[in-house]
Design a protein around this nucleic acid. Structure first.
Lengths: 209, 209
DNA sequence: GTCTATAGAACGATAGAC
DNA sequence: GTCTATCGTTCTATAGAC
């Protein structure tokens, strides 16, 4: 097995430190120290600290997006229209698969995502590509068919709520890193709790207003 | 009307800038410049940048906590036990009252809260006092009585989800600050959507696992 | 209470040798 | 592709005059 190259080691170190200390709380020096690389290597491989963050974010998000997309494809290929529960599971499931609570790395990943998404600076949030929007729009359409009578605005509200619940929950677990919360059993429980919680929420009758 | 003192002007400026640029993205210099005060005034009045953040956070959170507490008192003083919907409204309502979407300041406030809560650094999150925990524990107990059969762990999961939905939704609205999202009508709609969404989610049957 | 001035340290980026 | 060395900037915190 060949040793990982400098570029990969910088990505690994940056993913860890950005998650633990935030983007602004992490210096390029800390990243290169942890990676066992030189300070100038970041500039060479990525151009700047902001572009390094974008590379880290893309590497983390990509498999989640792909799994969400594949799950939706599978549901839409069937004959009966997918139920709300199935859509919720296809959307939220990959967030649990790629960020297993039992795995310390998974908890870190969820922390990283929330850290990035909640940063006020455009420099930090502005890495998203068209792929992310496409997945969201496809699920929006599928939920719209499963929930007729819901206005587009209320549907968008509910989609935001769904993302908020899955992402933020794991972060609180990580912040008060009790070992019990990080066990695989706890992760599986959280997955089922989330699906129950979100299926009921998404299926609520339209508010009308 | 006496002009506001330096201390208050620093608090106002810090609240605005912390919300817009985050804690680490805001320098003490930027705060004192906006406040029309001197750089050293922060050290004199608050001791350090971190203690200034704590003062800002307390000033924002206090009225929300008080309203949540008063709402619960009102429900518990009645004869029939409060329904889940009433508890949801008493808990989430103050977040909308104190952070009206139609008001630019309210949108900023919600951004500030999420910025603080999602920061990885203990320095940033560690300002909470016993008051915050008390309110959460009281609601936890009330929801527990309204939802028998739910395990304490699943109940805590659902409470986290409730907070995530109300807080995060407003932030996304603020980040893509389309004027339509900031109208008072949109704020009232979001309030009703949230109560519908969360009542259904909280009332879901126990998962059991 | 509010100011000036500055100490003291850390930062991101890059030029240039190897 | 990886290093050393350093430039120029920005930061918080504080000492001390008024």
């Amino acid at each position: 097995m060949a040793p990982p190259d400098t570029r990969t080691q910088i990505l690994d170190a940056a993913e860890r430190l950005f998650a633990e200390r935030g983007y602004r709380g992490t210096s390029v020096r800390a990243i290169t120290d942890l990676a066992g690389a030189n300070l100038a290597a970041v500039g060479y491989h990525f151009g700047s600290k902001a572009e390094l963050l974008a590379a880290v974010a893309r590497r983390v998000i990509e498999p989640i997006n792909a799994a969400q997309c594949a799950g939706l494809d599978r549901l839409l290929a069937r004959t009966p229209d997918p139920a709300v529960t199935e859509l919720v599971e296809a959307f939220a499931g990959p967030l649990f698969d790629e960020m297993p609570a039992g795995d310390e790395g998974g908890a870190r990943t969820s922390r990283l995502i929330v850290t990035i998404l909640s940063d006020p600076a455009e420099e930090v949030r502005g890495w998203t590509g068209p792929a992310e929007d496409t997945v969201r729009e496809r699920y929006l359409a599928a939920f719209g068919r499963a929930l007729p009578g819901l206005s587009p605005e209320e549907l968008r509200f509910r989609m935001r709520g769904m993302l908020a619940v899955t992402a933020v929950d794991r972060v609180e677990v990580y912040q008060q890193h009790s070992p019990a919360c990080l066990s695989p059993a706890a992760g599986e429980a959280a997955r089922h709790w989330a699906i129950t919680f979100l299926t009921a929420a998404m299926s609520a009758p339209p508010t009308g207003t």
